[in-house]
Amino acid sequence: MRTVRTLASLLLGGAALLALPGTAHAETPSPSASAEAAPTEAGTSFRTATVVRPGQRATANASTGDYLYWQFPADAGDRATVRATVTLPEKAAPRSGAHTWQLDVYDGLRRHQACRYGSTTKSLAADARSVELTCALRTVRALAEPWANDPLPGVYHVRLTVVGAPAADLGQPVDAALEITTADAGAASAVDGSLSTPLVPSTGRAVEPDGGWSSGWWSPRWLWTAAGAALAALAGIWGYSLTRGRGRVLS
């Protein structure tokens, strides 16, 4: 009896620690990721997109009008936020008007992705130096129907470009920075099924999260269910004991 109780309390403790959605392990810049040198160049197309790891701050020097591409891995249960900063260098020639910058995120199938919140298009006044664009992506699901546009595990492409600028300002130097943070959405978003391989094109660059793609076998739901079963067993024993023995309550 004692052992059963200890086991149950252990299970419960484990469940409480691990199973609470999202709170235990949010914001994932792991030490190994930040130890790697952050990229200082951006790609110019989907194919040449530079790989950025969540937690890194990627930078790039470019010309106004360039299309800057990055890519990052997002696994099932991830909630990624993309943050891009555009800074015009101090010594740049004076601008002749406002510039409009835009951030677009595409999934591994190059489908445009919606943002839960964050402004992806912003105007930079002629006298301003920098502008920040953000996009908080939807939770990545392990599987969705082929007809759905839900985010799936795989690579995500980020495109940053100026969409509106006076012609005279195109070609001028600009500095861009990109940061990606991911938070775990927790067990609540664990869905059934999984892709055989994440959406990473075989002809593209090899992209993998730190520690590899999840196998699709783990979810804190195992703990919840196990804890529930243990509690049910205990409750069963308790209920039984109430009807039996000397000090029985339920007759």
Partner: peptide, 12 residues
């Protein structure tokens, strides 16, 4: 827990 308890009582 409820179902477990009910099952225990019933069994008793």
């Amino acid at each position: 827990i409820l179902v477990g308890f009910a099952a225990g009582v019933l069994w008793g």
